[in-house]
């Protein structure tokens, strides 16, 4: 093989490698993007039905129901003060999960419209509200104020 041909081969291989890497990265990236939706947006049907997303809001006071089950199933509702959405979760909730606290849940909607969460996040600071949740609460309140 002449050095020139050899160099061409190397360049072709590099291009191929980079191409594969980029394709791989973009596919994985696309599959794992999770958008954030507020309860109002979910109620308007904007959230995807068949893929995971993040749902945030304030935990409705008095809505947390813990069954007696061994598997720690818990149901609660989140609100943006305009709409509420029921969430079902199985497992241990974070330390700062409380009624009246802003949380973000990751999961999917089921056929009944219940958000089945695989993960619940509450921020580790009593003053701190996740920024998306703060925005969602503000929007929710604004939309409620707009309706007489």
């Amino acid at each position: 093989m002449t050095p020139r041909r050899k160099r061409m081969w190397i360049i072709a291989l590099c291009v191929l490698g980079v191409g594969i890497a980029v394709a791989l990265i973009l596919t994985a990236f696309n599959q794992n993007l999770m958008y954030f939706y507020s309860p109002s947006e979910v109620a308007r049907g904007e959230a995807p039905g068949n893929r995971a997303f993040r749902l945030g809001g304030m935990v409705v006071k008095g809505s947390v129901e813990r069954g007696d089950a061994k598997d720690l199933t818990v149901r609660f509702k989140v609100t943006d003060f305009a709409q509420e959405r029921a969430i079902a979760y199985r497992g241990i909730l974070p330390d700062l999960f409380r009624e009246g606290q802003g949380i973000v849940a990751i999961g999917q909607l089921d056929a009944q419209g219940v958000f089945v969460a695989s993960e619940v996040l509450a921020k580790h600071d009593e003053k701190y509200m996740p920024p998306e949740v703060a925005q969602a609460l503000k929007d929710g309140q604004a939309s409620k104020a707009a309706q007489p």
């Binding site: 990236f29 599959q31 794992n32 958008y35 954030f36 993040r54």
Partner: peptide, 28 residues
């Protein structure tokens, strides 16, 4: 870098709030 900055850039441009899940990083 892509997985870390992309959500920030989108948010800064007001194109929606999203996050990139850990499976992305593991898969890549």
């Amino acid at each position: 870098l892509l997985g870390t900055l992309y959500p920030l850039v989108l948010d800064a441009l007001n194109l929606g709030k999203l996050s990139v899940g850990p499976p992305y990083f593991n898969n890549v």
